[in-house]
Every structure is written in C-alpha cells, then in structure tokens.
Amino acid sequence: MKRVLITGAAGFLGSHLCDKFITEGYHVIAMDNLITGDLKNIEHLFHLEHFEFYHHDVTKFVHVPENLDYILHFASPASPIDYLKIPIQTLKVGSLGTHNLLGLAKEKNARILIASTSEVYGDPLVHPQSEDYYGNVNTIGPRGVYDEAKRFQESITMAYHRFHGLDTRIVRIFNTYGPRMRLNDGRVIPAFIGQALRGEDLTVFGDGAQTRSFCYVTDQIEGIYKLLLSDYREPVNIGNPYEITIKDFAEEIIKLTGTDQKIIYQPLPQDDPMQRQPDISLAKKILSWEPTVTREEGMKLTYEYFKNLSQEELSKKEHKDFSKHIRK
C-alpha cells in the first residue's frame, strides 16, 4: 500500500484530497496545525485503519516515520481574511514550510506536489492566463504576502528539481468551491451564500465588472490527482475556464437562494485582480483533464451543503474533542 502525506489536510481542499486518496487505496498521513483548518472536515476518516492525523506546524522540522511515496503540500491560508490577518505565518508556510517538505521528500525519495495558485499571476495583463505568463504582482502590497509566498514556493520547488533531481509537481489552482468551505473566509462564494442565508444584502467590491472562473471541488481534486501521477514537472493550471462577472454572479446567488436581497457596492480592495480565467490547454493536452461539473450543478450542491448547516454552525462551528485521534 502506497503512503501519502497531505499537509493542510483539515482544510477545504486538503480534506477532499484525503477522501480521494483513501478511496484510491492509499495510506493517508494527514497533517495540519489547525490555524485555519477544522478537524470536522476529516472526522469521518478517524476510524479508518489507513488514516492518521498529526497536529503539526510544517514551518517547524517535519518528521514522518517509515517510508513515503507522495507528499502533497497544501498547508497555507488561502483566503484574503486569513492571510491579511496572519501575514507572517502565510509567508513562513510558503517558504520555511515548503523548504522542510522538499527536504523530507528528498530524504524519503518521494514525489512531491506543491499547491500554488492563480494569485502568482497577480492582477493579470494577459487574459486568459497561461502557464508561460509571469504575472503582474505588487510585492509590497497587502496581498503580496500570499502572492509572493506562492511564487517563492514555485521557485524553490524547481530549484530542488534541477539541483537535487527531486521528483516535483506544481499545480496552479484557480478559484475552487464546494462543501467544507468556511462561510466567512472572505472568498466570493461562501461570502455571498453566507449573506443570503443570514438575510443580508450581498456585498460586491468595486463595480462588479471584475471576473472570476469557478471550479467545483471534485473537478479540482481529479485534476490534482492526475497531475501527481503524470510525468510533467512544471506548473499546470487547474481551473474552470468559464468566467463570469462578480455582479452577474451575485444575481445568480440571489436567484439560487430564492431571497430578495439587494446588491450593495463597496470600494475595491488594493490589487484585487480584475480578471481571472485559466487557460487550461496544457491540462487538456498532458492530463486529458477538463472540468465536467457546470456552475449551475456545483452551486446547487454547495448551497445545499451550507443550507443544511445548523444555525450554530453558521455563526460558529462547535468543536468536538478529537484528542484521542491526534498525534503530535
């Protein structure tokens, strides 16, 4: 049985990756420091023989006993609210954390996949964004802590590949949504759905003409899995190329939820990208991958998930005692 380490495992994408690898017959070692992750996302796996969880911060030395076949590094704050609140930790997990995990991959002779992001393109001057575009990033702006952490992450990963011959993969993740997102994390979809469920008007920043492209989580996970098992070592965009303006998307949410909220407008945050659309030609070519879940289908599933949360969970998630399942 192959063994895989997944960091950021209690987060949105990390928890879905745990599900995927368990389903595919792997022994999964999950790791998270729980700054932004939630053990509720993986509690359904605790009883399994081939799942174990380590409560650990990857910016500190990472030790995993026995062999490893794969490492997937998904530990990082990913929402503006989080990385603006904890900017130093965001930079450290992208730099020190990545360095530690690359070292672990070298020690274990394991293949490592690094989770990068469309934010490496910044506020792009090229549309749609392909992997050969170098980006337009403000290194000293408030969003720079996340953007530059990810850009450094890509650089050190390629350095380990070229200098040490490490077997590496890099995925550039575009906006992804689905169950287990946090309602109030500042990202577009949970923010809009949370406001609709609470009966609040929907907040759009700027004039709403900026675009985003939303990929349902099952499509994203399948793309990541295929990339890990491929022979391609440079960055690959994984996302849904069908873009929509934020204003039009807010109107879709109001229609989906059956509410009568209005759209209100607030000033656009500094360096907020005006366009975000992946060119997925490379993923189609080398992975035979493209998204299959339409936004209409995915949003219905996502809305049902949030609607079924209890009112207590909508305001603040209750925490169970998971201590017997946690390794230090």
Rank of each mutant, 00 (worst) to 15 (best):
K255Y: 11
M31E: 10
V137D: 04
E148G: 00
F152E: 05
C215Q: 06
K285R: 14
Y70Q: 01
N240I: 03
S288D: 15
I35L: 15
L287Q: 04
T176I: 04
E243T: 10
K247L: 14
N109R: 13
I254E: 08
N175W: 12
R169Y: 08
A196W: 08
T98S: 07
P80W: 07
K316D: 10
H44F: 05
S281Q: 15
E49T: 15
E200N: 13
E296S: 12
L113T: 08
T292D: 03
Q89A: 13
I263W: 08
L125Q: 14
V217L: 10
K85Y: 13
K92D: 12
P124R: 05
Q275N: 13
G97I: 11
S76L: 02
V236Q: 04
R187W: 01
V64K: 01
L166E: 06
C18T: 11
N175F: 13
D185K: 01
I280N: 06
K255A: 14
D279E: 13
I35C: 02
Q261N: 15
W289K: 11
G186H: 07
T23P: 00
I88K: 09
D147R: 10
T36V: 15
Q195H: 08
L72D: 04
S79G: 14
L113H: 07
H161I: 01
K92E: 15
I112A: 02
I263D: 06
A110M: 07
G94P: 09
P77K: 00
F322G: 01
F61E: 14
S95W: 09
H55T: 02
E154D: 13
T294L: 09
L287E: 03
V28T: 10
P273Y: 06
R3T: 14
I81L: 12
F53K: 03
F214T: 06
H16S: 04
A209I: 09
T294M: 05
D19C: 02
G94D: 04
L48Y: 13
V93E: 11
D279M: 05
N33M: 04
T139A: 11
L227S: 09
G11S: 09
N138D: 15
T294D: 05
D248L: 04
I88Q: 10
E304A: 10
R151T: 05
N184V: 00
L96T: 10
L197Q: 08
Q270C: 00
P278E: 07
T294W: 06
S76R: 02
H325V: 00
E66L: 02
L183R: 05
H63G: 01
E154I: 12
E66P: 00
E318D: 11
I193R: 00
P77D: 05
V293H: 02
Y70I: 10
I6F: 02
P142I: 10
I35R: 12
I29S: 06
Q210D: 10
H27Y: 14
F152P: 03
H319R: 08
E318S: 11
A149Y: 07
L34V: 10
G199F: 09
